[in-house]
Design a protein around this nucleic acid. Structure first.
Length: 228
DNA sequence: AACGGGTGCAACCGCAAACGA
DNA sequence: TTCGTTTGCGGTTGCACCCGT
């Protein structure tokens, strides 16, 4: 375990790496008296540390239920999905991962996962996808699904119908437009959509949600993946 | 072996919210 | 209501380690 050397600042307050002795003092004190009131705790435990520093050390490193070691694939997937939903709200994300701390999740994201996700998004943004949209008759605001770069005619005005009598349309989408359509409009579409991905991309174990994300499912959904 | 750039991660900082007198 | 203190959070820093040259 690596440790930075510690030092005392001008206020006689210790900063930097915690020694094994300090860890022991903090653990012993909390086992006897419990956590809370950290600045007082620091004094009573005989630590020349700021209360804040004691709290951080305890919550991020010393607390008994902290899970140490590599983050599993399942945990990694969960972090990615939660970050997609919640953004940089590390404490909320960590709250869903028993034994993991917000600091650990944040570090893991910043040093590893962010790059991985960005690479994946870059890869997926190059996949030419088609989106087949089915609308039920009372859908409102269906046009909001159609990006401005596409034909602005109502796609359901004179389109064929499927075996469930749902009108459908097939259009080429730029994946960025597709994602933007959720963010830019109040979408009240009710129906289904199918993503068509060229077969040679499908070989690469690519899931629908990898391509279009999971963030725009309020009133509609993608329910099918059709290799071309 | 020595050096330097890149990386990981513990710890710190600043701010805002919560709390209590 | 105001004010001081504590707590919690996310962003940032900087040391130790790794690895290529």
């Amino acid at each position: 375990m690596k440790r930075k050397s510690s030092f005392e600042n001008e206020d006689n307050v210790k900063q930097g790496a915690w020694s094994a002795e300090e860890d022991k003092m903090l653990i012993n004190y909390i086992q006897l008296h419990g956590e809370g009131n950290w600045s007082e705790l620091s004094k009573r435990a005989g630590l020349k540390r700021r209360g804040k520093s004691c709290r951080l050390r305890w919550l991020n490193y010393l607390k008994p239920d902290i899970k140490r070691g590599n983050i599993s694939k399942d945990e990694e997937d969960l972090v990615i999905r939660l970050h997609n939903l919640l953004g940089n709200r590390w404490s909320l994300i960590a709250g869903r991962l028993p034994g993991r701390t917000d600091n650990e999740i944040k570090n893991y994201w910043n040093t590893y996962l962010r790059k991985k996700v960005e690479q994946k998004q870059h890869h997926n943004s190059n996949i030419p996808v088609k989106l087949r949209i089915e609308a039920v008759n009372d859908s409102v605001n269906t046009m909001s699904l159609i990006p401005t770069s596409c034909d602005s005619q109502n796609p359901f005005a004179s389109t064929p119908q499927d075996d469930r009598n749902h009108p459908w349309t097939l259009q080429d989408f730029d994946i960025t437009d597709l994602l933007m359509s959720h963010e830019d409009y109040d979408c009240h579409f009710r129906g289904c959509a199918c993503v068509e991905i060229p077969l040679h991309f499908a070989d690469e174990a690519c899931m629908i949600n990898d391509v279009v994300g999971e963030t725009w499912y309020e009133n509609w959904k993608i329910n099918e993946y059709i290799p071309l």
